[in-house]
């Protein structure tokens, strides 16, 4: 397995994701600066990490989406390379047009930093296979702009094509407004591209991979990736 983590000015989860890839997948990812034009050859996975790239100026992820390296990320994505965007990485993927929809200010206007419950809606992907269908997991979120929005037609299409990877739920796996932390349309926490190789999600699986962090519900995502690219 060969991976790269893109580092933007203001990324702050780049080392967490590198650590998760090292500890679980047993590989050291290439750290690629946003101004680089090229990516290493033969990558299986590109990660856009969490953080506050460019201080969230204009819109979260809007400036990073135009970074020089993003041209290479787009061409690799088109060639079928897996791309994982976590939190700010998800915002960047939507701003870059690699995933549909957008992420607006949280409905409650507050920055939310706590664990949330998620249901694995699509378990047939390189990211989620190890969870199993309908698994309910606990993963932290830490964002101000996580309110997923798209027009009704796009939302219907995502549902029909099974491209909603994760939804916010209560601890029993029930979808409810009270279990939706940020007002996301249809409780969407993560979406997939049409070829199911690109995943964007607001929660941070890389922050819960070791019991010392208070849980290990993030680990199966990295186990899934390791199996996919073994």
């Amino acid at each position: 397995m060969k991976a790269a983590v893109i580092v933007f000015p203001g990324s702050n989860c780049d080392r967490d994701i590198a650590d998760a890839l090292a500890k679980i997948c047993g590989m050291q990812p290439h750290m690629v600066w946003h101004k680089d034009q090229d990516l290493p050859e033969g990558l299986d996975l590109i990660v856009l990490p969490g953080g506050f790239s460019h201080g969230d100026y204009l819109r979260s992820g809007a400036i990073a989406a135009q970074a020089p390296v993003m041209r290479a990320v787009k061409s690799r994505a088109e060639a079928g390379c897996a791309v994982l965007g976590i939190c700010n990485g998800f915002q960047i993927l939507t701003e870059a047009g690699l995933l549909p929809g957008g992420l607006m200010r949280n409905a409650g206007l507050k920055f939310i930093c706590r664990d949330v419950w998620l249901k694995v809606d699509a378990a047939d992907t390189i990211y989620t296979r190890s969870y199993g269908s309908d698994a309910v997991i606990r993963i932290p979120v830490a964002h101000h702009d996580g309110n997923y929005t798209a027009d009704e037609r796009t939302l219907d299409k995502l549902e029909a094509e099974g491209r909603i990877a994760f939804r916010y739920t209560d601890p029993e796996g029930n979808i409810a407004d009270t279990a939706n932390p940020n007002g996301s349309a249809r409780s969407i926490a993560g979406v997939l591209s049409a070829n199911r190789r690109i995943l964007g999600l607001m929660p941070h699986p890389e922050r819960l991979i070791d019991p010392i962090q208070g849980g290990t519900d993030g680990r199966p995502m990295f186990n899934s990736l390791m199996e996919a690219f073994a």
């Binding site: 819109r59 135009q66 939507t94 549909p100 929809g101 957008g102 607006m104 929005t149």
Partner: peptide
């Protein structure tokens, strides 16, 4: 269209 506004929202 490219940067200043996000046509999704």
């Amino acid at each position: 269209r490219k940067l200043l506004a996000n046509p999704v929202m």
